[in-house]
């Protein structure tokens, strides 16, 4: 079982340390390529140049959701199999996801100004992403407020799972509340409706974001493992000095 073999924190650090620079390089190359494509792609006949915001905004919004999904899955494994590594992975993903979500909100707002004439439009999607951002904030705040590392991991894992179950419901309720927004237009059962010239840069950018996420995530997991080790040893020393 490769997964249980890797689940040992020390082994994980050793195996993935050399992988990290490659992922970083991949991310850089993809970003360079993607950004080139963004500016090389034709402007939209309606939106003009502002359509280029989409290449930053849409992948960020995807990543916001994707990262939450990653957090949910890691939390699930942490909760069921009580793996220290899964806890670390979930905790490590949260701030990255929060930043992606904030980026999606900010670029969405920037895009909204020329498109809709307002910085913020209370449409279903924007509102759902805002709630997702609140989820991330709640997760991070809860983690920070519980001192016992293991308890914090457990409580936040439960929160992440409740959130994961609730996300579709909240999305539905917000859509129900406001049906006045454009439908999702890239992945539809009847095929993409975005012109291929726009789809390419979008996909390259999406991959670049993914690689960036993996890179940052690996660094943060490793940091988490090290800090736990440090805390464990320090507590141990304290016990030696104070207790014996």
């Amino acid at each position: 079982m490769i997964i249980s073999w890797l689940a040992n924190p020390d082994r994980f650090s050793k195996v993935f340390a050399p992988v990290r620079p490659w992922v970083a390089g991949l991310s850089l190359i993809l970003f360079a390529w993607g950004l080139y494509l963004c500016f090389a792609s034709p402007e939209d006949y309606q939106q003009g140049d502002t359509v280029r915001i989409m290449y930053i905004h849409v992948p960020a919004a995807w990543m916001a959701l994707f990262t939450y999904l990653v957090m949910g899955v890691a939390s699930f494994f942490g909760l069921i199999f009580r793996h220290a590594l899964a806890d670390a992975a979930a905790k490590a993903a949260a701030p990255i996801g929060a930043v992606f979500t904030a980026l999606a909100l900010i670029t969405g707002s920037l895009w909204g100004k020329p498109m809709w004439g307002t910085w913020w439009e209370w449409d279903g999607r924007m509102t759902s992403v805002l709630v997702l951002f609140l989820f991330y904030i709640g997760y991070i705040a809860l983690h920070a407020s519980i001192e016992d590392e293991q308890r914090a991991a457990k409580s936040t894992a439960i929160l992440a799972l409740i959130g994961l179950i609730n996300l579709p419901i909240i999305k539905f309720s917000v859509d129900w509340w406001n049906t006045l927004h454009q439908g999702a237009s890239v992945f539809r059962p009847d095929g993409p409706t975005v012109a291929p010239a726009m789809l390419w840069p979008l996909l390259v950018m999406a991959l670049a974001y993914k690689a960036l996420f993996v890179w940052l995530w690996l660094i943060r997991i490793d940091t988490e493992i090290l800090s736990r080790k440090y805390n464990g040893l320090r507590a141990r020393l304290g016990f030696r000095e104070g207790g014996a």
Partner: peptide
């Protein structure tokens, strides 16, 4: 956790949306 009330509000209110 020692942040009690405000933290609960932060965690719970998004779930009150529906």
């Amino acid at each position: 956790s020692r942040k009690g009330g405000v933290l609960i509000a932060l965690l719970v209110l998004p779930f009150y949306v529906p």
